[in-house]
């Protein structure tokens, strides 16, 4: 395995990339390794559909990595494989060097659909994971309240999910996942169902939280701007079959301010370049 963390067999331009933390990290710092992973789904009749074809990828500890691509490129499937929710047809996915056999509290998902427990109030949702793991009520409650304050929901502890807006629901979902302190955050188009304004605010808040906790984040999105704004690396995927087209290192200073970046020529160039890659991919398959 290369020292460098990301490579793509299918394409040549996986140039050596240096990690955000330091260059020359050894392979022990790899949080997630995806080794020749393919995923085939049976469709109606006897046909099968190759959703992911021979994906190779290494994500280092503490990195913010986005997976970007058109719908149907298998980007969510790749995330579900890392989550252990879907078993790959071929290949191995590893977290901290161990093969993934199922879901576990070291990998916390956040879904576009929020997937909150509607029968629990906000605090109850955030405490749920801790209570299931046998943490005492008082301790779980204290941690829950702290997290709700962090995601800006102080005062909403006793609200039920149906009484919240989409943005607030997603804040609860993020707090619920952070509560059991996973090493990896798996975010599946988490802001996809939100309006533009709420989306921007949640992006900023997510960056704040990430700055404090430095968890490894795997972030699936179809918004180029969102991927560039948030990430250290953007993995551009193409479809039919789902494969990695290119990996782009986002070399922009942190902490990032949206207002500054929008005027930044480098930021704009990243977006234009990546959009072109996706467009080319589209032509290939039309």
């Amino acid at each position: 395995m290369q020292v460098v963390s990301l490579r793509s067999d299918a394409h040549t331009d996986a140039e050596p990339v240096s990690g955000r933390k330091s260059s020359g990290v050894d392979s022990a710092a790899a949080m997630i390794e995806i080794d020749h992973v393919s995923q085939r789904f049976q469709t109606s009749g006897k046909q099968s559909h190759l959703a992911l074809s021979d994906i190779n990828l290494t994500i280092e500890d503490g990195a913010f990595v986005s997976i970007l691509g058109p719908s149907g490129c298998g980007k969510s499937t790749l995330l579900y494989i890392v989550g252990g929710f879907v078993q790959p047809t071929d290949g191995v996915a590893k977290v901290k060097g161990k093969a993934i056999t199922g879901p576990g509290p070291d990998r916390g998902p956040v879904f576009q659909e929020f997937a909150l427990f509607p029968w629990k109030n906000v605090l109850g949702n955030v405490m749920y994971g801790l209570r299931q793991q046998g943490v005492k009520r008082a301790e779980a409650e204290a941690r829950g309240r702290k997290l709700l304050e962090m995601v800006g929901l102080k005062g909403y502890e006793n609200f039920y999910p149906k009484e919240l807006s989409g943005g607030m629901k997603q804040r609860v979902a993020i707090a619920r996942t952070l509560a059991y302190d996973p090493a990896v955050l798996l975010m599946d188009e988490p802001f996809g169902a939100l309006d533009a304004h709420t989306r921007t605010r949640l992006q900023n808040d997510l960056l704040d939280i990430w700055d404090r906790q430095r968890k490894t984040v795997l972030f699936v999105t179809h918004s180029v701007e969102e991927a560039v704004y948030l990430s250290d690396k953007v993995i551009v995927m193409s479809r039919s079959p789902g494969s990695i087209k290119q990996i782009v290192d986002i070399d922009l200073p942190r902490p990032r301010k949206r207002a500054d970046l929008l005027l930044d020529a480098r930021f704009q160039k990243y977006i234009v370049d990546i959009e072109k890659m996706i467009d080319d991919g589209g032509k290939d398959h039309l």
């Binding site: 879901p103 509290p105 990998r107 998902p109 659909e113 997937a115 749920y128 994971g129 299931q132 996942t177």
Partner: peptide
């Protein structure tokens, strides 16, 4: 919702 069950599975 399947994702609700996945969330639970991720909690262990």
């Amino acid at each position: 919702e399947e994702k609700m069950l996945w969330s639970g599975a991720a909690m262990g």
